[in-house]
Design a protein around this nucleic acid. Structure first.
Length: 876
DNA sequence: CGATCCCGCCACATT
DNA sequence: AATGTGGCGGGATCG
């Protein structure tokens, strides 16, 4: 048959491997598309004749993407290529002729090449993460399908997931509109909120023990679960989507499932969700009913969703080892914290609004929800299901009261649950082997997560959080509070918070983050939850954010106490991270307002507040970004612990989160992320970039500064990395070359680490030196925004991160402009303010309080990096 | 052999 | 009825 077709269709060139179909295409453009999608061609028989089919073929042939694809294939199988370039074009049938089966197989695109994840990457590569509003970004399913060489069905899988996150929206039949990640933070935030309500406890629970939880809490679960069902909530479709009708079709499970799945991550303290747990939770009602087949199907779907989310750089696959064994799981590597409210952001550019933060923040929180709800409501009629929800929604829509009440109730309920969980946890904790929640998380050898505890746990704590920033989308900063305390608690870890310091130092930190202006992303702040964070970083990815996940509401209520307990264990675990790796995160600002400082004034909390000050305005001006610099550091880091102090404390108050919002307003914080070498590679992130960016596309990189940089650890050791987004021209010598490299890389793939260090950033400067004296020189003064070198910094005056604290390690950031917001002033400033902040941390945006670490002992150069301090100075 | 997940049938929705 | 959507699960691959 094939032959027949071919003859007819196209003369085709025998060329390569591709099956017949290809040949057809080839006919058109022989060289280019070696890779034709099999399907089209293959299937063609049935409809080769259809106009559509032909069209598709043509399109595919023409498409550049196709070429890429082919290239990839080649890469994958160089061997094959070399040998057979021409081999079998035949299909199976043809094979008979000459090709051996083997050859055939080789040529045949591997299953992996056809994976949904890869397809999704290609899909995403076609659109900018942050499209200009002006651009038209319509997506034609048919076109894309043909270009990518897949059936439309597959595109639906991708689009449905993207739609659930609002990266796209359906405008018409066969037409979708690409929105990009501009609103991703908001969407995530919304999901997080919704998730907490729906799954907060559940997750907590599950994480501890699934079974038990189910068992015991079965009822609860049911309750919640059902609720979850409502799609509308979650979804927001677009604001208007008028298509009320839209609701139709079942619930569009893939979309809903996707949202729910994401919610689970956002709600999870560990940020790791195992497939089976997710499947159980997502299987709606059924608690027990879960028949195996249904479960299986659900899992299948989750894989589909996970592939897309992975391509988006929001999650990554990991394995969790539990008592029962290793289980597949996914870890959230996307932004974790979202600024408080934020709706507004949407349209703006991140930097654009300088002021605002506060106000908006304040009000905003529910806005979005409300909007959606309304929408839903309209549609609502349809939603027959779950009346409850409807109710709920409505309620919620009102920002005010109802919701609160509801929460309260919820809280109370949860409290019990929490208590139970806690017990379990405690028990677990005792159990050396595992801590419940964490246990799940940890992944033993697998990826990066290891369960084994390291002796020193070093988990740095981060104190500060970054408040959110002004970024429109929202950055998130809230979360930490609660957790933070916990983290701090862990004893050892108390890293470095110094009272005033804005930054934290972690002992062996694997990485640091500093935030400067961020845009969407959040910074991840800290560590609260520790485990996650550590792990994450360690691992890898760029994810910066991991951790902290705490969220608010439910937690507050429910587990106030619990968390703490839990955390300890968690911390331990974290600490464990693979060998040394602990990472440290540093966050400049922090927002706590927390009055509560109960715990320790000086320490943690306060520091946090100081952090706020930290914010720099970098962003506002222009692009402020900071540069990053780092050096690798050796290891002794642990010493650092000494420095660290704990924070403590506590609880941040609930409200804090919101508060953070205010902070958020503030312009920015520079964030830096440093990852230890151990991890395998180092990253630096600039806060500015959107989180998503990371994963993505290289395409972005070029245009902007790259948000992340990956460097092989080894490389790092020798070189410090710096990234500064803002600047366009790379100052440092290295940069260019490296740069390019960087650009080329795709972050998404973890695998990519290049051997050489990469520097990215427009401005960035890199200093080759190792930890110790970093780089003064390298940097250039040039940018306005930041400087790395201390010297410069001083000159600039604005901000400086120095590491006085850090041991010497000099990393400094300077921010020139916008002092006002920036808290950063070094020592000088500090003193006075210092007090202020204590008093009213939250309110002051600026007060900057920097803490400094003292130098604690560790001063070695190596450790330098660890400590970043901003102000350095006074501890006071 | 379990984990993944491609593939595409087919039902339901929309036009 | 045709076409768009997308649930669903068999069974092929991968590891």
């Amino acid at each position: 048959e094939n032959i027949f077709d071919r003859s007819r269709m196209a003369p085709k060139t025998p060329i390569k491997n591709e099956p017949v179909d290809l040949s057809k295409q080839k006919a058109c453009t022989p060289e280019r598309n070696p890779i034709t999608p099999v399907k089209l061609i293959d299937r063609p028989q049935p409809d080769p004749w259809t106009p559509t089919a032909n069209l598709k073929m043509l399109v595919s042939a023409a498409s550049p993407d196709m070429r890429d694809r082919e290239k990839k294939k080649e890469l994958f199988r160089p061997i094959e290529n070399s040998e057979q370039s021409n081999t079998p074009d035949l299909l199976q049938y043809d094979m008979i002729d000459d090709c051996t089966v083997d050859e055939f197989e080789k040529q045949r695109p591997s299953r992996k090449q056809k994976s949904l994840g890869l397809l999704c990457q290609k899909f995403l590569a076609r659109y900018p993460s942050y499209p200009l509003s002006t651009e038209k970004n319509t997506i034609s399913l048919d076109e894309v399908a043909s270009i990518l060489g897949v059936e439309r069905r597959r595109i639906y899988d991708i689009v449905n997931v993207l739609e659930s996150l609002h990266l796209v929206s359906r405008v018409a039949k066969n037409q979708y509109c690409w929105h990009g990640r501009h609103n991703l933070s908001q969407t995530l935030k919304t999901l997080q909120e919704a998730g907490e309500l729906q799954y907060g406890e559940l997750m907590t629970f599950f994480q501890h023990k699934e079974q038990d939880s189910d068992y015991k809490f079965g009822e609860r679960k049911k309750e919640t679960i059902p609720d979850s069902q409502d799609r509308p909530l979650l979804d927001f479709s677009e604001p208007d989507c008028t298509s009320a009708s839209a609701n139709s079709r079942k619930d569009k499970s893939l979309r809903i499932m996707s949202q729910k799945f994401v919610m689970l991550f956002l709600v999870s303290k560990t940020k790791i969700v195992t497939l089976d747990i997710a499947a159980k939770i997502l299987i709606e009602e059924t608690q027990d009913t879960v028949d195996h087949s249904k479960f299986k199907t659900k899992v299948r779907r989750l894989y589909d969703i996970a592939n897309v989310l992975t391509s988006l750089g929001l999650i990554k696959k990991v394995h969790v080892t539990e008592e029962r064994g290793r289980k597949p799981a996914f870890k959230w590597i996307g932004p974790v914290e979202f600024p408080g409210k934020t709706d507004e952001l949407r349209g703006h550019s991140p930097t654009s609004d300088p002021l605002p933060g506060m106000q908006r923040g304040a009000c905003a929180p529910h806005k979005i929800c409300a909007t959606r709800r309304q929408r839903f409501t309209r549609h609502a009629s349809f939603n027959s299901t779950q009346p409850c929800e409807g109710t709920r929604r409505k309620v919620s829509s009102e920002p005010n009261s109802p919701r609160q009440e509801r929460q309260d109730e919820y809280c109370s309920k949860m409290i019990n649950l929490a208590a139970v969980c806690r017990q379990k946890i405690e028990e677990d904790t005792r159990n050396p082997s595992i801590t419940s929640p964490l246990s799940l998380l940890q992944v033993p050898g697998d990826s990066e997560f290891c369960v084994n505890p390291l002796p020193q746990a070093v988990f740095p704590v981060v104190q500060a959080d970054v408040p959110n920033l002004s970024l429109p989308n929202g950055i998130n900063s809230q979360a930490l509070h609660p957790s933070t305390p916990a983290a701090c608690q862990t004893e050892n870890r108390k890293p470095t918070l110094l009272p005033n310091q804005p930054f934290l130092c972690f002992p062996s930190s694997s990485l640091f983050m500093l935030c400067s202006s961020l845009q969407e992303n959040n910074l991840r702040e800290t560590l609260p939850t520790t485990g996650d964070m550590g792990n994450k970083r360690a691992e890898t990815q760029a994810t910066v954010p991991p951790a902290a996940s705490q969220k608010r509401s439910s937690h507050k209520c429910a587990s106030p106490s619990a968390p703490v307990d839990d955390q300890e264990p968690a911390a331990k675990k974290q600490s464990m991270e693979e060998s040394d790796v602990p990472l440290s995160l540093v966050v400049p600002k922090k927002v706590f307002e927390s009055p509560k400082a109960e715990s320790i004034p000086g320490s943690g909390c306060t520091s946090a507040s100081h952090l706020e000050a930290f914010h720099l305005d970098l962003t506002s001006p222009a692009a402020p970004e900071a540069t990053h610099k780092e050096s690798t550091k050796p290891l002794d880091s642990q010493e650092q612990e000494k420095w660290s102090q704990n924070k403590d404390p506590d609880e941040p108050s609930p409200g804090k989160e919101h508060i953070s919002k205010e902070n958020a307003n503030q312009p920015l914080l520079p964030q830096y992320l440093y990852v230890q070498p151990t991890a395998g590679f180092n990253f630096l992130f600039s806060a500015n970039q959107a989180p998503g960016a990371i994963s993505l596309a290289a395409s972005q990189l070029p245009s902007l500064s790259v948000p992340c940089v990956m460097v092989p650890s080894a490389a790092l050791a020798s070189f410090p990395l710096v990234c500064s987004p803002t600047v366009t021209s790379p100052l440092s010598p290295v940069p260019e070359g490296t740069f390019s490299t960087a650009t080329s890389m795709n972050f998404s793939m973890s695998g990519l680490a290049s051997t050489t260090p990469v520097f990215v950033g427009t401005t960035a400067v890199v200093t080759p030196k190792v930890s110790p004296a970093p780089s003064v020189d390298p940097q250039q003064p040039a940018h306005p925004t930041l400087h790395l070198s201390p010297v410069l910094a001083s000159s600039c005056g604005a901000v400086k991160l120095d590491s006085p604290v850090c041991m010497g390690h000099p990393v400094t950031l300077l921010k020139l402009q916008q002092p006002s917001s920036a808290p950063l002033t070094p020592k000088t400033i500090r003193p006075a303010r210092h007090e202020a902040f204590f008093k009213t941390p939250g309110s002051l945006g600026d007060p900057v309080a920097w803490k400094k670490n003292e130098g604690n002992q560790t001063r070695n150069a190596s450790s330098v990096q660890r400590r970043l301090e901003i102000s350095s100075t006074n501890p006071d």
